[in-house]
Nucleic acid binder design. Structure first.
Lengths: 210, 210
DNA sequence: AAGCTAATAGTGGAAAACCCCTATATGTCT
DNA sequence: AGACATATAGGGGTTTTCCACTATTAGCTT
């Protein structure tokens, strides 16, 4: 019997997942939590085998941070990140906090079951919509890329880009050349493994560069 | 027996909702759809009593637009918007497209059941986290909505623009020409008296077009 | 029937962004 | 001293936006 804790702030979704898991006789949902803090206390008191952790839970403590914290306190618990985003930045973060699994909310129910069994057996299970070779790279870069932090200048560029300013406008505000702005942008994209402007913007929005 | 169609792009969530509804003997889930276009075809072929419609479904045709379209073709079908956002802008949109219900994904399961019964009986059921008086105002302003001067299409363009997509990407998502996207953008700028893209983006961000 | 709005699509030229490079100055760490 | 990171800037070519127009169709309203 695999004992599972389900963490998601949306009651409907949480209940749905719980019902889904009830179909499997070898899985038992032992608890639910709706935010990061609750996830941590529940993890400690229930000592589950596997935690299904939504990424975007509210109240400051997001799924990644909660995962890090739980890892520290209970190194044997396996954690699967559950998210709607299959963007590289999110996957990278999941790898950084050493989540054992990562699956999308638009996976089939069976995937969820597979993932739980995989991480329970000590395997890594990332079911994402990007090619395997790119995944390999992400895992390789894990060690020497502690947090993939942008420099102060890059953060400024990110912020102004999210706000819709053109390279020339940004250059004007920072008293530099628009070519330099271009370079910063492409450095940012490389660092974060983003492949186009939309991903850059959406990363910026998701990370409050506004 | 109330016949329900469930529309959500995330399989896990959709299956969860279906399982949740299976607990009620007077409700039957007759179909599922994962995007706006599918929702419309399913609605026509299945003729459900109630549609549970996620707001943020992909492929251009969002839940609001799909709702409008279904209203046109099948005026007797009741539609409940299902969303994670309790922001006024979304509620306003729901009222504008005359959705019969609006509930948050972090409602209890019972709320879902209540909402389905309410709209099936011809009532309006908005379960949102804002005070009643503000809701009343929103409903009052429905007719003479001087506030939201953007058309539904323009709102879509605005949203995708804020998210950083290029004209060509937006065109691809909405199955129109990039020239049309350009025109919508310039119409938006004229309507809102904005003079460049940065102002457009910042207006969009401030008004939750994300 | 005439007028209006929304949505669609086009032309053509100027401006800007994007992409792949190279390059320099200035730090800091080992 | 050498390696590395950061911030700066440019060349040159391709793609995309931006802008100011025109135009057509469908669906309303008066």
């Amino acid at each position: 019997m695999i004992r599972v804790l389900v963490v998601d702030d949306h009651v409907l979704i949480r209940k749905g997942i719980v019902l889904l898991l009830e179909n499997y006789i070898d899985i038992e949902v032992v608890g639910e939590a709706s935010d990061g803090a609750e996830a941590i206390t529940q993890a400690i008191s229930l000592n589950p085998d596997v935690i299904l952790m939504d990424v975007s839970i509210p109240n400051g403590l997001d799924g990644f941070t909660a995962t890090q914290e739980i890892h520290k306190q209970m190194p044997n618990v396996k954690i699967i990140m559950l998210t709607m985003h299959n963007e590289v930045a999110y996957i990278q973060k999941a790898i950084a906090v050493e989540a054992h699994g990562y699956i999308l909310k638009n996976s089939q129910g069976g995937i969820l079951y597979e993932a739980i069994h995989a991480v329970y057996s000590g395997r890594i299970y990332y079911n994402v919509g990007i090619p395997q070779e790119q995944m390999d790279k992400l895992f390789e870069h894990k060690g020497h890329e502690d947090q993939c932090i942008l420099t102060v200048r890059e953060q400024e560029i990110m912020r102004l880009t999210v706000l819709g300013y053109t390279n020339i406008q940004i250059a004007g505000q920072l008293y530099i050349s628009s070519k330099t702005v271009e370079n910063h942008k492409s450095n940012i994209m490389q660092k974060l493994n983003l492949s186009n402007k939309a991903e850059l913007i959406q990363y910026g929005l998701a990370n409050n560069y506004m």
